[in-house]
Design a binder for these strands. Structure first.
Length: 109
DNA sequence: GTGGTGACGACAC
DNA sequence: GGTGTCGCCACCA
């Protein structure tokens, strides 16, 4: 029973270009509720049961910190990001604003 | 049906 | 500027 909010989150996450990342708040704001950032995170949690591949490793918190790395099943969320060309040090994305992909700007709703 | 929690964010102090 | 608290909505017990 995927809510439209969730589906929107998944769609946006899948639209994230390679080598780019976004924040929960950015997606939430794109959906119309910047304060619903928690729902975006929850959507990521539910994404585990989804048949689609959700590049959750491209979604980090507003600080560019890999907040959800602990929940990530992969051997290393950081490794995935580095493979994308993103520099990650100590679970912190370097040049975050440079790799930051804001749907509100890129998609220009 | 109620209460508590959660991959966060913004505002208040 | 750092810390604390509220908010937001869906899911689980």
């Amino acid at each position: 029973m995927e809510s439209d909010f969730f589906k929107m989150v998944y769609e946006v996450v899948q639209l994230i270009p390679n080598g780019r990342v976004t924040s929960y708040g950015a997606i939430a704001k794109y959906l119309g509720s910047s304060r619903s950032s928690r729902m975006v995170g929850w959507a990521m949690n539910a994404a585990h049961s989804l048949p689609y591949k959700i590049p959750a490793h491209r979604v980090v918190n507003r600080n560019g910190l890999l907040s959800g790395k602990m929940h990530f099943p992969a051997p290393g969320m950081q490794s995935l990001l580095e493979r994308e060309g993103i520099v990650v040090i100590n679970d912190q994305i370097q040049n975050f604003k440079e790799v930051f992909w804001d749907p509100n700007t890129e998609l220009s709703l």
